[in-house]
Deep mutational scan, measured.
Amino acid sequence: AIERGSKVKILRKESYWYGDVGTVASIDKSGIIYPVIVRFNKVNYNGFSGSAGGLNTNNFAEHELEVV
């Protein structure tokens, strides 16, 4: 089962992080479509409006993740 702290591989082909491994930061139990927040070591794009980097978290559905 996917739980907080799990290392997961991203299976969503259109994702910037496809094939990468991230760490589960949290799981939303409220029934939303993409409840699993995954944190990565790298950012997906340069930040804007003065922020240092881009996003390094993204929401995924459990079926888009594979525990490694």
Results as ranks from 00 to 15, higher is better:
V67Y: 04
V24Y: 01
R39N: 09
I37T: 14
N59H: 12
Y45E: 15
H63N: 08
G31W: 07
V38H: 00
R39A: 10
V43F: 14
S26G: 13
A52K: 08
N59D: 05
S26V: 06
E3L: 12
V43E: 14
V38I: 04
E14C: 12
L11W: 05
Y34T: 05
N44Q: 14
V36D: 00
E3G: 11
Y18P: 00
K42G: 08
S26E: 14
S51D: 14
I37G: 04
I2L: 11
S49W: 12
E64H: 03
D28Y: 05
I37Y: 08
V24F: 03
E64I: 03
F40P: 02
E66V: 08
D20V: 12
F48M: 13
I37E: 11
D28S: 08
K9A: 03
V8G: 02
A25M: 15
L65W: 01
I27R: 02
N56I: 08
S30A: 08
T57N: 06
K9P: 03
E66K: 08
N56D: 11
S49E: 15
K29N: 12
Y18C: 05
S6M: 14
V68N: 02
L55M: 12
L55P: 07
S15R: 00
Y16K: 05
G54S: 10
R4H: 09
R12G: 02
I37P: 00
F60V: 00
L65H: 00
L11N: 03
E64D: 03
E64G: 01
G5V: 01
V21Q: 04
E14R: 05
R12I: 05
A61S: 07
I10Q: 02
T23N: 02
T23L: 05
Y34W: 09
S51M: 11
R4E: 13
G19S: 04
N46Y: 05
Y45Q: 15
I27S: 00
E64K: 04
I27Y: 08
G50E: 14
K29P: 10
R4Q: 13
G47A: 07
N46G: 09
I33N: 12
G54F: 11
A61Q: 06
S30P: 04
V43R: 06
G50I: 06
V24L: 01
V8A: 00
K42V: 09
D28C: 09
N58M: 14
V43K: 10
G47H: 07
G31V: 07
I2E: 01
K13C: 10
L55D: 12
G5I: 03
E62G: 05
Y45H: 15
Y16A: 06
V43M: 11
S51E: 15
S6Y: 11
G5M: 01
S15W: 03
S26N: 09
E66N: 03
A52M: 13
R12W: 02
G53Q: 12
G50R: 00
W17F: 06
Y18D: 00
S49H: 09
K29A: 07
K13S: 06
V67P: 07
N41H: 11
A25T: 13
K42A: 07
E64V: 04
A25D: 14
I33V: 11
F60M: 01
E62T: 10
A1E: 10
N46F: 07
K13D: 03
A61T: 03
E66H: 05
E64L: 02
K7G: 02
T23G: 01
G19I: 06
G5S: 02
G47E: 15
V8R: 02
V8H: 01
K29D: 09
Y34N: 11
S26K: 10
S26M: 14
R39T: 13
V36R: 00
V36Q: 00
K7Q: 13
F40K: 01
H63K: 06
D20C: 14
E14T: 10
N58S: 15
V38F: 01
Y45A: 15
E64R: 02
G5A: 01
V68F: 06
K9F: 05
A1I: 13
V67S: 04
V67R: 05
K13H: 06
V68G: 01
V43P: 15
H63L: 04
K29F: 09
L11K: 06
I32P: 08
G50P: 11
I27T: 03
I2W: 03
N59P: 08
I2F: 08
D28E: 11
G47S: 09
F40S: 00
N56C: 15
P35L: 10
A25R: 07
G47Y: 06
L65N: 01
S49D: 15
V8K: 01
V67E: 04
I2Y: 03
S15T: 02
S6K: 06
V68A: 04
K42H: 07
V8C: 09
K29G: 10
V38N: 00
V36N: 00
Y45M: 15
I2N: 01
G50S: 11
D20S: 09
N59W: 09
K13W: 08
N44M: 14
I27A: 01
Y16G: 04
N41R: 09
R4W: 08
S6L: 08
I27M: 04
G50L: 07
L55Y: 11
I33C: 14
S26F: 13
T23Q: 05
F48G: 14
S15G: 01
I32M: 13
S49P: 11
I27F: 07
S6G: 04
D28T: 04
F48W: 09
K13A: 08
Y34G: 05
S30E: 07
K13L: 10
P35D: 09
E62C: 13
E66G: 03
E64P: 01
D28Q: 06
I2A: 02
K7I: 12
V38M: 00
D20R: 08
E66I: 08
K9I: 09
G19L: 12
I37V: 14
G31D: 15
A25W: 11
A1C: 14
N59I: 05
G5N: 04
W17R: 03
Y18A: 03
E14L: 06
K7R: 10
K7A: 07
S30N: 07
N56H: 08
L65G: 00
A52S: 13
K42L: 08
L55V: 14
G50Q: 11
I10A: 01
G19D: 06
L65M: 03
V67C: 04
N46H: 12
S6V: 14
V36W: 04
E62K: 08
G22S: 03
D20K: 11
S51R: 01
V67T: 05
I2V: 07
R39H: 11
R12D: 03
K13F: 09
G5L: 03
L11Q: 04
Y45V: 15
G19R: 04
I10W: 02
S30C: 09
V67I: 11
H63W: 13
E3K: 13
E64M: 03
D28A: 07
L65T: 01
R4A: 13
F48T: 14
K29C: 13
G22E: 01
Y45K: 15
A1S: 13
D20W: 09
F48R: 02
E62F: 15
I10S: 01
I27D: 00
N56Y: 10
N41T: 12
A52R: 04
P35W: 13
D20H: 12
S26Q: 08
K7V: 11
P35H: 11
S30H: 06
G19V: 04
Y34L: 07
G53F: 08
Y34S: 06
A61I: 02
G22I: 07
D28M: 08
E3I: 12
N44V: 09
